[in-house]
């Protein structure tokens, strides 16, 4: 494998997103939402202004769980199928580059753009709030940003996999939307539904493990479990064993959510 080839493709993908202001637009969206949540998150209780980092992160988690998977899927769904449909894939593959290098280059370039906009968007808020945050709060906020990046990278990996399997861009976009619906809206409902219908008889013990089968849930657990103020509020402490909530373990699960779809995409792309 030649790293230089991966870097060339990745660099082009990244600078394409910088140039067309995609990174700037997404970063501004993140900044705006984060600032609004930080300052007006407590408006329903009759007060405005920053209250605590725990509450701010809990609110941001709810937002990010919807937003980042969608952005990542939109970013990556045509990574390969788009090149194929436009007719530029043959020319790329006629270069001294392997399919794995091309796929990784695409992925890393898009992941860099998503990471950059996530860090820039939420990082700017950290800078604005820094006067009101102690080191512990900053640490938590940093953890939130890192897990947001991992969440984005996991869904981007899924998107790139879809872009390899899909026959055309239209189907790829349909698959991307279906993936978002499944993981963000339907998955938890299905689990809860199974628990309720079976009166807790079915799936009770494996329920925490099933949550790991959804990167959005892994992200939620990563953030909520580390915040003492909100853990009980979410009820996660009662259903999720503390041993499974180890941030390193959850981080590893997130990396698996990045590696496995990319591995499947590579296998398919080589065929």
């Amino acid at each position: 494998m030649e790293i230089a080839q991966i870097a060339t493709i990745a660099s082009k993908e990244f600078w394409d997103r910088i140039r067309n202001r995609w990174v700037l637009a997404v970063a501004l969206v993140f900044t705006a939402f984060a600032l609004v949540i930080a300052y007006f998150g407590a408006a329903q209780q009759g007060s405005v202004g920053f209250r605590s980092i725990d509450v701010t992160i809990a609110s941001l988690v709810s937002l990010v769980i919807y937003l980042i998977p969608l952005i990542a899927l939109v970013l990556g769904f045509d990574a390969i199928v788009g090149e194929r449909e436009r007719g530029s894939l043959d020319l790329l593959l006629s270069m001294p580059i392997t399919r794995l290098e091309l796929l990784l280059g695409k992925y890393f370039g898009l992941a860099a753009a998503l990471t950059f906009s996530t860090i820039a968007g939420f990082g700017l808020v950290a800078v604005v709030l820094s006067a009101k945050l102690d080191l512990n709060a900053l640490f938590h906020y940093f953890g939130f940003m890192l897990s947001s990046v991992l969440l984005g990278c996991a869904f981007l990996s899924l998107a790139v996999m879809l872009s390899v399997f899909a026959a055309d861009r239209t189907r790829a976009s349909g698959l991307a939307i279906a993936t978002w619906f499944f993981f963000v809206l339907v998955f938890d409902l299905l689990l809860l539904g199974a628990l309720v219908v079976s009166g807790g008889q079915w799936g009770g013990e494996i329920f925490p493990y099933l949550l790991l089968a959804n990167p959005a849930d892994v992200f939620r657990i990563l953030n909520i479990f580390s915040l003492d103020d909100v853990r009980t509020l979410y009820g996660l402490a009662t259903v999720f064993p503390r041993a499974l909530a180890d941030p390193w373990l959850l981080g590893l699960v997130m990396f698996a959510w990045i590696a496995v779809p990319l591995g499947i995409a590579t296998w398919r792309f080589r065929k």
Binding site: T8, G87, S88, L91, M95
Partner: peptide, 26 residues
């Protein structure tokens, strides 16, 4: 290789296009 109906990247300049492919080709 010049494919039939070659498709290049609209957002790059002519020079940038060649620089990109030159890097890939070494």
């Amino acid at each position: 290789y010049l494919p039939e109906n070659v498709v290049l990247y609209d957002n790059l300049t002519g020079l940038e296009t060649l620089q990109f492919f030159a890097r890939l080709k070494g």
